[in-house]
């Protein structure tokens, strides 16, 4: 498992930014007192937990553009499709299911990217990521179309893998 860590300073700064932003969201009607307290809490709390929050530090902020304008539209569209798929299966009296557990291979290196991929797969039509083992993901598929590893990879993870590869270079 390869792990590219940023410097501690960058990770700490990222934690401060995330905490401060979250604090502002939580205490929504804006007031200057809340902001002061939020700054203090972000500085102190990040000192305790910045190791947990992120591995790549401030690089995550640069990825926000790809996330918002490329990943999110694809993801929302796939999620809607997934729900309509579930609706079609559940409301059909015959229940056309043909489940199976297939194996796909991903080229992503970083652990966080793998987790993004697994989460996206879970929320897309008919698939549920069950297990992960190095470069292989085990997927429960509600309607198996192919048993081949390459074709299954193309079918299930194709659209997201490109985006995530661009995101987690």
């Amino acid at each position: 498992m390869e792990r590219v860590e940023s410097s501690a300073g960058s990770r700490y700064l990222y934690a401060v930014v995330v905490y401060f932003f979250l604090w502002i969201v939580l205490t929504y009607p804006f007031s200057i007192h809340e902001w002061e307290a939020g700054a203090a809490i972000a500085l102190l709390g990040a000192l305790l937990t910045y190791k947990q929050l992120s591995v790549s530090g401030m690089k995550n902020i640069e990825r926000l553009g790809i996330l918002l304008f490329w990943y999110l539209p694809v993801f929302i569209w796939e999620m809607l499709k997934a729900n309509l798929h579930v609706a079609a299966i559940v409301l059909n009296p015959k229940m056309p299911i043909k489940p199976g557990i297939v194996k796909i291979k991903t080229n992503l290196k970083s652990p966080v990217a793998k987790v993004w991929l697994a989460n996206s797969i879970t929320l897309t039509p008919g698939t549920l990521s069950m297990d992960i083992d190095g470069q292989y993901l085990y997927i429960h598929w509600i309607k198996v179309k192919t048993k081949d590893v390459e074709k299954a990879t193309q079918e299930i993870a194709g659209s997201f893998e490109k985006i995530l590869e661009a995101m987690f270079k």
Partner: peptide, 18 residues
């Protein structure tokens, strides 16, 4: 309606998330 744990999780996760 669905038969086993994994199929039920499929429906459960997607539908409850959205």
């Amino acid at each position: 309606r669905l038969p086993d744990v994994f199929n039920r999780l499929q429906a459960g996760t997607k539908a409850t998330t959205l």
